[in-house]
Amino acid sequence: MSRPRLSFEFFPPRSLDASFRLWETVRELAPLDPAFVSVTYGAGGTTRQLTHEAVTTIGSHYWVSVAAHLTCVEASREETMAIVDGYAKAGVREIVALRGDAPQGTDRFTPHADGFASSVELIEAIAARGDMQVRVGAYPEPHPDSADTAADVAWLKRKIDAGASSAITQFFFEADTFFRFRDACADAGITAPIIPGILPIQSWEGAKRFAARCGTAVPAGLDEAFATARRDGREQLLATAICAELCDALIEGGVEDLHFYTLNRPEMTRDVCAALGILAAPRLEAVA
């Protein structure tokens, strides 16, 4: 079994304690030699400056490529492309282009009057620059705003045709969910890499809330398994085993890339990688 390429998602810190946790997570996981890491962007652009600071700091202090998340929410085209310009000047060469979730207090995405109406328009504008690699989101189970998986596949095809070079999926619990989606994408003529998104289960209750929010199916029996493991003090062991088994099945099925949603906590991701035989190679951080 060959070693998969790794990537990790972080979110920008909103407090001093959160900042310490982010940098500890980066220090722990960077030695696993990821192909890239990404930094999320809050709903409605609420973390715009924090995201920029996290992206540029990681990029200047570590040896990893950093992809900055960018959305269409509550910003004009001019404002959005000014953010891209700022990243380019800071040496960032990758963007994860997303439509974005509806701002807090609203139940649906509404384009800004002078903004991009969809992720496809945003991708086209970034790709036209010629100096950015664009990654996009993909949904192996129907997006909450989508009619079905066929519609999600068709929309992903539009995003790839608009200039995206690869896609990162929403998390899922079963390898067959990804394989069915991958096959449907291939049948639709999508040849760009589709990277499975992996959520190490830091908290089972938290994972279920995430799943309900994004339409991810929860396999029967996991509730009972985690209840039993909690009683026996083996919840973390079970979570690690479930995630490692999922990753192993994906790799056996030909997957060459794994993208981990770390939630700014390195332990579970590190332990899953260790279970797969992927160990850290110590390196020196760059000195500011």
Rank of each mutant, 00 (worst) to 15 (best):
V37F: 04
G42E: 09
I83A: 13
S19F: 00
A207C: 11
S146E: 03
H112E: 03
L122G: 02
P13A: 08
E141W: 03
C273W: 01
A90E: 03
S15G: 09
G130A: 03
K89F: 06
L263H: 06
A175P: 08
I201R: 02
D232W: 02
T262E: 06
H112L: 06
A113W: 06
V218H: 08
F179L: 15
G215M: 09
Y41Q: 04
D85C: 06
S19C: 12
D187R: 14
L258H: 11
L237T: 14
A239N: 05
A82S: 15
E235P: 00
Y139A: 09
T56I: 05
G91L: 04
L279T: 13
A127Q: 08
I83P: 08
M132T: 00
L98G: 09
A150W: 01
L250D: 03
L238E: 05
R21Q: 13
R93K: 15
D17C: 01
S165H: 07
F20N: 07
V92D: 08
S60T: 13
L32W: 10
D107P: 00
T106A: 06
V153M: 07
Y62S: 08
W23N: 04
A192S: 15
Q104K: 13
H112P: 05
A186T: 14
V39L: 03
A244W: 02
D101T: 08
I242E: 11
R129G: 12
P140G: 07
T169W: 03
G100L: 04
D232I: 00
P31S: 10
I198W: 14
V153D: 04
E121H: 07
E79K: 09
S7C: 12
V218F: 05
G86R: 09
E224Y: 03
G105W: 11
D271I: 02
F179S: 06
D145E: 15
T80G: 07
A151G: 12
T25L: 07
E28I: 09
R93G: 11
A281V: 13
G253I: 04
D107M: 05
P13R: 11
A229M: 14
D161V: 08
R14C: 01
A147W: 00
T177M: 09
G254E: 02
A113M: 05
T216R: 00
E124G: 01
A67W: 13
T47L: 05
W63D: 15
V255K: 01
I242Y: 13
W155L: 14
T269N: 02
K157P: 01
L276E: 10
G59H: 15
E74W: 08
M268N: 07
R93S: 14
H143V: 02
E224S: 14
E79C: 01
T46S: 15
S119F: 05
P193Q: 10
S19Q: 14
I278R: 12
L70R: 02
N264P: 10
L246V: 10
F20H: 14
E28H: 08
L284T: 11
R209L: 12
H259L: 09
A54G: 04
S19V: 00
W23E: 01
S76C: 04
L284G: 10
R230G: 03
I198R: 11
G59P: 05
D176F: 04
